[in-house]
Amino acid sequence: MIRASVLFIGSLAAILMSFVALSVFPSVQLMEIEPTEGRIDYNFAESQGRQVYMREGCIYCHTQQVRPDGFGTDIQRGWGTRGSEPGDYVYDFPHLLGTMRTGPDLADIGQRQPSRDWHLAHFYNPRSVSPGSLMPSFPYLFEVKDEAEVLASDVTVTVSEEFAPDEGVIVAKEDVLNLYAYLMTLKQDPTN
């Protein structure tokens, strides 16, 4: 080739086409989509919890998308009752669909595992409730207090002796409580 202009115009035209088709078109197509019945925007604690989910990089091991029946075994595993649909995500920016399942899918975790005690123990040390798990512990989302200093409003966490600190009580910080609140919004049927 001799003319640089052909190169530049051609290259730009090529990428412009796929940009319009794969980035702009889906946005336009999904602009008017109705949210799944019962799905409402995140409240303050939930959106703060979503920030914690983003900050700690949960997406690198957990997806939030249930594969439809006949494609994978998500539904047999009890990860949901139907394939995920665009209406499940209308309030999501950034999207947190994820690409990796070192851990299980979380699109329906609020339905599957609603227990706050379980989740807090799991965040404090995943192996305390899920032996052999590779998930990191998040001790910095908790503080260990003397029994005398625990307030009535504190949320305490119980783990078995093997995982508990030598002395003191494990108290959940606000971040992890918000994270729990966010996880509880992850339901395929929010009316449930």
């Binding site: 290259s11 990428i15 794969l22 946005s27 602009m31 989509i33 950034p94 999207h95």
Partner: peptide, 25 residues
């Protein structure tokens, strides 16, 4: 040299949300 900045600029535009954000991503 055209494609790199084009990609970074277009994906930084505040026009995506939900599933469309994932396709753009």
């Amino acid at each position: 040299l055209l494609w790199g900045p084009f990609l970074l600029i277009t994906f930084s535009l505040p026009i995506y949300e939900g599933v469309a954000h994932a396709t753009a991503n």
